[in-house]
C-alpha cells in the first residue's frame, strides 16, 4: 500500500457494550451455552448481543431497521459512533465498505426454513430482501445520510484487509473524502453446525464465538487522528491447512519490519501461528478470554491496536482462504 490512511474515529458494538472500552476486558461479556442444532450434546459458549436492550436498542424504531436483522443493528451502531465522533465531516462525501464472512445469516436461515417447512409458495416476501448481502449496509447509509460509494464485500475473515484496500483506492482516486470500513457478524445457532462440520472446535485453541461490529473512519493522513494505517498486505492464499503455514509465513515476511505482532489467532490456526513465531512474544490487545467474531474481530483488533504505543502489526488470519495484515502506527 503506497499511501497510508489516518484513523479519524472508531465505533464498536460488542457483547460487552458499545464503545472501545467494551473491548478492553472480555471477562465480563455475557456468555451462554448454545447447543448445535444438528448434533445432540455439543454445547458451545457464545457471547451474544441483545438488540432489544440498552445500550443496543437505540435504532430499533428507525424506519429501515424495525424489521432488519441483528446484523444491521450491529452495523449501524458502530458506523454511527464513527460519524458522531466527527460531526464536522460532510456525510455526502463519506464512503462505506462493509466486510462480511457470514453476512445475513439469521434471516437467510429463517427464510429458507420457512420455504422448506411451509412450501415454496409460502416463502416470505418480507424476509427475502433482508437475506441479500448488501441490504444491512443499505439500511445504514439510508438512516445515517451517507452519500458516498458503498460496497459490501465478502470473503473469509481476511476480507477486512481487502476492505481496507478498497478504502485506500477510493481515497486515492478522490471518490470519497472519508471512508468508513466496518466489519460485522451476527450469530445464528446453525453457525455452530457449520463450524463443527469443518472441525474448527477441535484441537488448538478453544473457539468462543461472538457477534457484533467494529468500524474505523479513515481519511488521508493528517493531524488529530487516533493512529495511521501505514501498510496493508493481503492475498496470501491457501487451500489446505498445510498451505496455510506458507501463506502465513509469506504474509508476515511481506509486512516485515520490527513492529510487534498483535495476538489475534484463534481456532485451528493458533497452533500454526505459535509454531511459526517460535515462542516469540506477541502483543495481547485485550484482557479476558478471546472471542471470535470473524470480520468484527478484525475490526476490533485494529481498533485495539490504535491504543498501543508504537507500531503494531495486526494479522488477519482468514481461517479458510487467505491471510492479510495491517501495520498500525500510533
Amino acid at each position: 500500500m503506497r499511501n497510508g490512511m489516518g484513523i479519524c474515529s472508531v465505533g464498536v458494538s460488542c457483547p460487552g457494550g458499545v464503545g472501545v472500552e467494551a473491548l478492553l476486558d472480555t471477562a465480563g461479556w455475557p456468555v451462554e451455552g448454545v447447543p448445535e442444532v444438528g448434533r445432540r450434546g455439543a454445547i458451545r459458549q457464545v457471547a451474544k448481543i441483545d438488540c432489544g436492550s440498552e445500550p443496543f436498542n437505540r435504532w430499533r424504531m428507525t424506519p429501515r431497521l424495525r424489521r432488519a436483522s441483528p446484523l444491521s443493528h450491529h452495523l449501524i451502531e458502530a458506523v454511527a459512533q464513527c460519524l458522531e465522533a466527527r460531526p464536522g465531516i460532510d456525510r455526502a462525501r463519506v464512503g462505506v465498505v462493509g466486510a462480511f464472512f457470514l453476512g445475513a445469516l439469521e434471516y437467510s436461515v429463517r427464510f429458507y426454513k420457512g420455504l422448506t417447512d411451509d412450501g415454496r409458495r409460502f416463502a416470505s416476501p418480507v424476509l427475502f430482501p433482508e437475506t441479500v448481502v448488501n441490504s444491512p449496509l443499505s439500511h445504514v447509509v439510508a438512516e445515517l445520510g451517507i452519500g458516498g460509494p458503498v460496497y459490501s464485500q465478502t470473503g473469509d475473515t481476511s476480507c477486512w484487509a481487502s476492505a481496507l484496500r478498497t478504502a485506500q483506492v477510493w481515497l486515492a482516486n478522490g471518490d470519497a473524502d472519508h471512508v468508513v470500513v466496518v466489519g460485522a457478524e451476527e450469530f445464528n445457532a446453525h453457525e455452530l453446525d457449520g463450524l463443527g462440520a469443518v472441525r474448527w472446535f477441535e484441537g488448538g485453541a478453544v473457539l468462543r464465538l461472538a457477534e457484533g461490529a467494529g468500524a474505523v473512519l479513515l481519511g488521508p493522513q493528517g493531524s488529530d487522528q487516533l493512529a495511521r494505517i501505514t501498510r496493508v498486505v493481503d492475498g496470501f492464499c491457501y487451500r489446505t491447512r498445510g498451505e496455510a503455514v506458507e501463506a502465513a509465513r509469506g504474509c508476515l515476511a511481506a509486512i516485515g519490519g520490527g513492529a510487534r505482532l498483535a495476538d489475534t489467532a484463534s481456532t485451528w490456526i493458533r497452533p500454526v501461528v505459535d509454531g511459526l513465531l517460535g515462542g516469540n512474544t506477541v502483543l495481547p490487545l485485550s484482557a479476558g478470554p478471546r472471542y471470535e467474531a470473524f470480520t468484527a474481530s478484525c475490526a476490533w483488533n485494529t481498533i485495539l491496536a490504535t491504543r498501543s504505543a508504537g507500531p503494531v502489526v495486526v494479522p488477519y488470519w482468514g481461517l479458510s482462504h487467505q491471510i492479510g495484515a495491517a501495520e498500525i502506527m500510533c
Binding site: 462480511f100 448488501n134 481487502s162
Partner: peptide, 11 residues
Amino acid sequence: FSGPVMIVANA
C-alpha cells in the same frame, strides 16, 4: 495463480 481477492456483493 494466487493474489489479493476482492469479492463485492452489491446485489
